[in-house]
């Protein structure tokens, strides 16, 4: 029996939350292929908040591609805890190797998945995030997706993005988008006194 299998068995059997925290840390420290899958499965059945937080923190040190592959589908979960975990982990773990996964998430039929993908991209450190956010703002048909994309374009974009942001306002007629666009334009133009906090 390899070490990951042995630790997984302990994690599944022990009723002691403190021991589960220890085992989660050991699994993450192994950095073995399959660790992320074990941790995600453990999160899904875990009810203790401390253990859940430890699992999220541990996923952040596992292999990026494996983690992203495991957690990205969870954005579609009916379980809000799983969605929130996936969202948080993706925001920290996304890198250029995960661009195709984010691109696929932005094509999902479920607009909530697209909204969460935009938030994860906007908050993360993925080098290609800005181009995907621009694309989402330009083509997505949902006002919440476009609004979220504009929010982050205004934070990490350039003054030249003002034109794209203006065009978004023309595609939707809603006070929410008017507000978001005004705020984004002020930020992109460096007019910080006009930005409502």
């Amino acid at each position: 029996m390899d070490e990951l299998t042995a630790l997984t068995e302990v994690l599944e059997r022990t009723e002691d939350a403190g021991e589960r925290v220890d085992v989660v840390c050991k699994i993450a420290a192994l950095r073995a292929p399959g660790s992320a899958k074990v941790l995600v499965q453990a999160f899904a059945r875990e009810t203790d908040l401390m253990v859940r937080e430890t699992i999220v923190a541990s996923l952040l040190i596992c292999d990026t591609e494996e983690v992203v592959e495991e957690v990205a589908p969870l954005l579609k979960s009916e379980d809000a805890s799983l969605r929130s975990m996936a969202f948080e982990v993706l925001a920290y773990k996304g890198d250029e190797k995960c661009m195709s996964i984010f691109e696929a998430l932005l094509q999902e039929a479920d607009r909530d998945v697209r909204v969460m993908a935009v938030h994860a991209l906007g908050r993360g450190t993925c080098p290609g995030a800005l181009s995907l956010l621009r694309k989402a703002a330009a083509v997505d048909q949902d006002i919440n997706v476009v609004g979220a994309a504009i929010e982050y374009i205004s934070e990490i974009g350039e003054p030249g993005d003002a034109e794209l942001v203006e065009k978004c306002r023309e595609r939707f007629s809603h006070p929410y988008l008017d507000f978001i666009v005004q705020r984004a334009l002020a930020r992109l133009r460096g007019e910080f006194d006009k930005i409502a906090s």
Binding site: E53, A80, S81, R83, S84, F87, E88, A91, M116
Partner: peptide, 11 residues
């Protein structure tokens, strides 16, 4: 809101 990191809205 519902989808928030750490503690989601339902909780």
């Amino acid at each position: 809101d519902i989808n928030m990191p750490r503690m989601h809205g339902y909780d």
